[in-house]
Design a binder for these strands. Structure first.
Lengths: 199, 199
DNA sequence: CGACTTCTTGACAGCTCGTTCAAGAAGTCG
DNA sequence: CGACTTCTTGAACGAGCTGTCAAGAAGTCG
């Protein structure tokens, strides 16, 4: 029996979501505990008591991010025709409306950012992002498989390989766009990729 | 006239190259001045006197990286047929043999790594990587233009758009591969991309 | 040789950061 | 109320970092 003590004064879930936004926009290393304390209105000791150290806190945020993204991706791709939706997803890689209020994504894809910053030297982070990538390709490959069967997508390549290629495209777009997004050029490139999938 | 004083005891160019390797493999933030001092066998004061502060040092290394890569890319793409070479470049994004002795690249593409770590909040870094990306797409678009004229590459999309897409693919591959490279899957995805360019 | 310039060395200041911890506050239960 | 548990607060610690600087070494030039 856990004898109940003083109740927590903040919402753990909401706090994790807000920390996710901060980590997302600034990255792991550039987000200090003090930044979190200021933004979350929760003191250091409480953060440590609730979430463990900074690294565990961050990894928990990444897990949440992927969890939400995976659910939205699965839902979005369960439709026909597939290619228009796929195009939309590529151009808005993380339209996770449930999580962030602003229209644009703070800074590309959090999984990609984590890869650049912590992988491969942090093995737990490596496992999380590897699983996320595998999840993405599995979901997309499933959808492409259906779309191939429906005659919408070319079967000149296996769905898994097409999905892997799309993963590269999303992550590349997300990364390169940080240096300044030429929307016209980006859209044209995405269209070229989508056209390459057409049957 | 500059009265000559005590001569420098280390080779500036070689030192920059070795610093590049270190920055490449560990990233900007994770490479401390002490790491550089140990690896380069040059004391702090000399580094500061020769290269300015850490940030300028790093940006100089990135400039060198791109300079070498650009030269090799231009040379490599000046050939026909284009697609086999393009495939090779995608799968070995930074085979800059002149710079590194080992076969594999220390850690993806340094320009991509810089993008993830310093862009957009560092404006000088942003300009460097943006110029590099533009250089890449210019060179590749030129080659694709020739290959389209030769009937090797499909003209269903503009060469610039195809080049932009290839930039995304290289950077995406470079990033995602940090989480563990499934060579079979990666090659198959690249092949799918190359096949999509075929006329 | 002596004046002058530049490079080398490594100690040091100053700062930021992650993490800990003791003291107190806010609950529950008997 | 009093014992017990858990959460809160914020000061303090120690580690690691970047950048500086004074003293000395190694050259050139007159």
């Amino acid at each position: 029996m856990t004898r109940t003590g003083r109740p927590r004064e903040f919402d753990k879930g909401k706090t994790l979501e807000r920390a996710l936004e901060l980590f997302w926009s600034r990255g792991y290393g550039a987000t200090s505990i003090q930044d979190l304390v200021d933004a979350l209105a929760v003191e250091r000791g409480s953060l440590y008591g609730t979430f463990g150290d900074k690294r565990r806190f961050y990894l928990e945020a990444v897990r949440l991010y992927w969890q939400v993204y995976e659910r939205r991706l699965t839902a979005a791709l369960d439709t026909a025709p597939l290619l228009p939706v796929l195009r939309e997803i590529l151009t808005h890689p993380a339209r996770t409306d449930e999580l962030i209020s602003e229209m644009g994504t703070p800074n590309g894809c959090l999984v990609g950012n984590t890869t650049a910053e912590l992988v491969p030297h942090d093995s737990e982070a490596t496992e999380i992002v590897a699983r996320s990538y595998r999840g993405f390709t599995d979901i997309v490959a499933d959808a492409l498989h259906r779309a191939q069967a429906a005659g919408e997508v070319t079967d000149s390549a296996r769905p898994e390989d097409q999905a892997q290629l799309l993963l590269y495209v999303v992550q590349g777009l997300s990364l390169v766009s940080r240096a300044g997004l030429d929307k016209k050029a980006a859209l044209a490139a995405i269209d070229a990729a989508i056209d390459g999938l057409r049957a």
